[in-house]
Design a protein around this nucleic acid. Sequence first.
DNA 1: CTTGACCTTGACGTTGATGTCAAGGTCTAT
DNA 2: ATAGACCTTGACATCAACGTCAAGGTCAAG
Lengths: 126, 126
Amino acid sequence: MRIGELARRAGVSTRALRYYEQQGLITARRSANGYREYGEEDLKLVSEIRSLLAVGFTLDDARPFVACLRAGHESGGSCPDSVAVYQRKLAEIDDEIRTLLTRRAEVAAQLTTACPGCVLRKVGKS
Amino acid sequence: MRIGELARRAGVSTRALRYYEQQGLITARRSANGYREYGEEDLKLVSEIRSLLAVGFTLDDARPFVACLRAGHESGGSCPDSVAVYQRKLAEIDDEIRTLLTRRAEVAAQLTTACPGCVLRKVGKS
DNA sequence: CTTGACCTTGACGTTGATGTCAAGGTCTAT
DNA sequence: ATAGACCTTGACATCAACGTCAAGGTCAAG
């Protein structure tokens, strides 16, 4: 299939696909006229990339997963490198959550200081 | 005081101060030679801005706080507009936290699926 | 043969808060 | 008068993942 069809089926833009290729995440054969030609495996790769992006991974994070699929594994996450990324990501997310919780407390404290009572009375609630 | 001194005392770069001015957050008198001239109030404004940025506010979010201080209030947060921003920010932070918690669960689930047991065995732990 | 749907590469725009040059004016001290 | 520490405005660079033209080639259908 060509890039337009892959884009439609994967739910991404053709621009995104070319970008992934430029970043070395996917590759494409070229037909005689220079058009990119993809197979079903590529749909799988792109789907993997999208689901990873959807949970906050970067394209760089997605590399090991793509490599894993290319290596023939059914799941992109079943390779050591992918697992390492999963674990690093979990740690990063935990960090962010902690940061946000701290911030939340700080902001709530400042609000309380600046306007005692404001933090308790929800807007629009009697 | 001139921009260099304010920058040192506030712990920011002169570039940042000029940017805040460009964004309409602070203003400066000009001495005969064209140099920016600041007073102690400006240090207070900049400090307020920095502490807000530190907890994840944008410069735009900081506007009401600066206006509040300029209006003579001791605290930048003690004006209705500032309180509204506080509350909006709290809601935003809560949203982000919820999103991250969801993501964490998703990533952990994928990790479990891809590599059962990996999520339990902490790296480097026997 | 021409429309129209598809494809190509290339390159600038987006977002926020600066960093970092460039090219030059000002002022103090030596 | 010259170094050097300060100031000025202006403008491009950064980060990620694309969006959005621009200018043009390809191909099947009418």
